[in-house]
């Protein structure tokens, strides 16, 4: 289209006048823009405007047709570029991976979102925590669904992470060059268990309180190590090893029993420290998949 088709819209010219037209400030601005940069009016057409904004955000077409465009759709996308633009057919077979690794990522995503929303309601205090849980089931809109999603995602994630580890073992996917990613995976599983354990206390109901009492009791069993070391023959007056189990338990609970100190410690671990740590490990785990040559394939050990 030609630029000249467009005219600045202003008041209609006064017909036969006493004075040369007295333009308002808007019309003056319009005319000035038209003189200096007539294409501005073309750029403001909704179609062109939308197209230009879209192109500035997302440089590839939304519906790629050629192979090149399809590659670019992954390569140029912030969210998709961590994955390869081309993938082996074998890797796409559902029965090879059952999507377990991605599934645990999805569950972690659901846990993060539902957990952040739960934080708007929850108060980590022994006086208020349980009441807030009851609020979730009674007065908060969709509160029980929110808590249910957090609960079920957490339990599912622990199971799915374990199944994922079984898949990787049974398909020999931990072998070179992926040894270290398996190690990262074991760390991720331990972190998942600890996240589950720290979250278990927060509802502050009977189940939570006594499960953590049992769990902290297990940590206290580390006394066995220091007791045995101290029982070794040693010169009189030599320093003794402090009771390791009691120290661990104290570090965990901040007290001899499960109470306010334990609740705030578990809360901070559960909503801030551990999520950041596990996120870093998840990102590293995924980065290594690409660097170790993508998902394992039978082509790596022809039989």
């Amino acid at each position: 289209m030609s630029v000249k088709e467009l005219r600045p819209s202003g008041p209609p010219p006064s017909s036969g006048g006493s004075r040369p037209s007295a333009d308002g400030p808007l019309t003056k601005l319009n005319k000035a823009i038209y003189r200096q940069a007539p294409e501005v009016f073309d750029n403001l057409r909704p179609r062109a405007l939308f197209h230009n904004i879209y192109k500035s955000v997302y440089r590839t077409t939304a519906f790629p047709k050629t192979e090149r465009e399809r590659s670019e759709a992954f390569f140029n996308s912030f969210l998709l570029h961590i994955q390869p633009a081309k993938i082996e057919k074998h890797a796409l077979r559902f029965t090879y991976t059952f999507g377990l690794g991605l599934l645990s990522t999805y569950l972690f995503l659901l846990l993060t979102i539902s957990g952040l929303l739960l934080m708007f309601v929850y108060v980590p205090s022994v006086q208020d925590a349980y009441g807030r849980m009851q609020d979730l089931h009674s007065s908060v809109s969709f509160g029980y669904i929110l808590r249910g999603m957090h609960f079920w995602s957490a339990n599912a994630m622990i199971a799915v992470v374990f199944f994922h580890m079984c898949r990787v073992f049974y398909t020999g996917a931990y072998k070179a060059p992926r040894e270290f990613n398996w190690v990262i995976g074991v760390i991720l599983m331990v972190l998942t268990l600890i996240l589950g354990f720290t979250g278990y206390l927060l509802p502050w109901d009977q189940l939570a309180f006594w499960a953590i009492t049992v769990g902290a009791g297990i940590a206290g069993k580390a006394n066995w190590i220091s007791d045995n070391i101290n029982a070794l023959p040693h010169p009189p007056g030599a320093p003794t090893v402090p009771p390791l189990g009691d120290l661990t338990r104290w570090a965990l609970l901040g007290s001899d029993t499960v109470g306010q100190e334990a609740l705030i410690r578990f809360y901070v671990l559960h909503v801030a420290i551990l999520p950041v740590i596990i996120t870093l490990f998840i990102v590293y785990h995924m980065w290594r998949i690409r660097k170790d040559g993508g998902i394992s394939s039978p082509k790596e050990s022809p039989e």
Partner: peptide, 26 residues
């Protein structure tokens, strides 16, 4: 989460230990 809501027992009571006290299933 809609059809099987997360369980919530009575409020924690340090004087009333259940027998047995069980850890989370995992």
């Amino acid at each position: 989460s809609v059809f099987k809501p997360a369980p919530l027992e009575l409020e924690a009571n340090p004087q009333k230990p259940p027998n047995p006290a069980k850890a989370p299933w995992y």
